[in-house]
Each structure stands twice: as structure tokens, then as C-alpha cells.
Amino acid sequence: MSGLRILVPVKRVIDYAVKPRVNKSQTAIETTGVKHSLNPFDELSIEEAIRLRERALPVSDILALSAGPAKSADVLRTAMAMGADRSIHVQVDTEKEGDLEPLTVAKLLAKVVAEEDRNVVILGKQSIDDDAHQTGQMLAGLLGWSQATQASKVEVEKEGSTVTVKREVDGGTETLRAKLPIVITTDLRLNEPRYASLPNIMKAKKKPMIKKTMEDYGIDIKRRFKTVKVVEPAPRQGGGKVEDVDGMIGKLKELGAL
């Protein structure tokens, strides 16, 4: 296969609009009976992959992948309704095994990249549940590929061998240029993801979703980290109001800020 062969890993997370609550045993965030959806950063990745194709670049295949419980099939269906061509669901009983660690996911992705002959991986810079912000970087390390993280703009040459990525850094924008293959992680301002249209939702029903297990890829899912305790941040102390400028200066002096 020639052209861009894109892998877009996606994750099912607690919906961004839901206020997360710590469970009773203080071991994790409460997930039962809570609305879940596709990780917002992953929506950006899928959107970017589709846009590369819409810009008439030689995209031969967009493959979405998710490793997680049975319900993760929902986010893969969403990814395919948005425009991914096919998907792989690596089934993991996260209820029993706990959430996968970034390194485990990176190792899995490296295997998939080899098996599926990918040359571009576009993934969210982080998932909004554990906010680890590590998988993309680890994957590039494992593969020995170029990496462009927190992308705010992605351009691929027509011939499809050189990629230019703009990334927002402290104090400005950094522009990176790299040859394929490459790992790109997406940031909020990269694009505005589309809503899956009704006809595309129907078409997604016919797109293939392959079920796999971690054993199929020979990946050990044992956790290397132990979560000791999860607690909610201490409630913020309410601020006070001052009457006028003098009041404010007085208050600042009182606090030792002046």
C-alpha cells in the first residue's frame, strides 16, 4: 500500500461535561452510570486524518483502534461514522485489570503499526481521564520515529513524504518538518471536529470492526504503578470583596503582598 496509512488510536472516557467524582474506596474516579464518550483530543485526531484525505492527499487507509471494555466499540463506531475506514477493538476488561498504562498502550500501538504497516499515527496528546500525556511520545520512542506533539496545524506535501507541523509552545509557535513515518499528537486548536451525519452513521454499520485481545499482540497488561489514593482537590476558599482601591491596598498589605 502506498500513500498515507494512518492509525488513529481512540479512547472511551467520561464525557467532558460530566463532573468527575471519586469513588467511595478512593481508588479511582466513579465510572458506573456516568455518561462516556470519545476522548475530545481523539476526535481531533480522526478529524485531522479525514481532512488530510479531503485535501486530496494520497490517504490509502484510516484505521481507528481502541483498547478497552466492550463499550469501547461505541467510540470506534463514532470514529467510523466520522470517516475512519475500519477499526480494531482490542478487548480489555478494565473493570478487572484496571486502566491500561501509557507504556502498555504504546507497546500495543507499536505492534499494530508493524502488523498493519502504518506510516502515520495521529493521536490525542492526552486522554481527559488520566491526563497522562505520554503515549504518543513513548510510541515514537519505541518505533524510533519522528514525533510532533501538540500539533495546531498539520501539512503534508502532495507527494506525501514530508510533514510540516506547527505546535504551540510557551511564547509562540514552533514549526517542525519531518519525513515519514511520524507520530503526531493533536492539540485543541488543530481543527473543529465534525458531527457524524445520519447517512454516515448508517454507512459505519457496514465498516469492519475486528475484535482482538492483548494476548493476540503478545502484550503484558500488568500494571507497573499502583494507585495509592485518589482524592478530590480541596474546595477553593471563596474570595472576599473590597469596597475600594484603599481597601484593596490594605488587604494586599495585610497578606504581605505589598
Partner: peptide, 13 residues
């Protein structure tokens, strides 16, 4: 599954 996905997308839209 299809109805649920559609509901979700329409709700967001």
C-alpha cells in the same frame, strides 16, 4: 446502537 449514536450526535449538534 445506531439510534444511540445518532441521538448522541444530534444532541451535540
Amino acid at each position: 446502537e445506531t439510534e444511540a449514536l445518532m441521538k448522541d450526535q444530534v444532541s451535540k449538534f
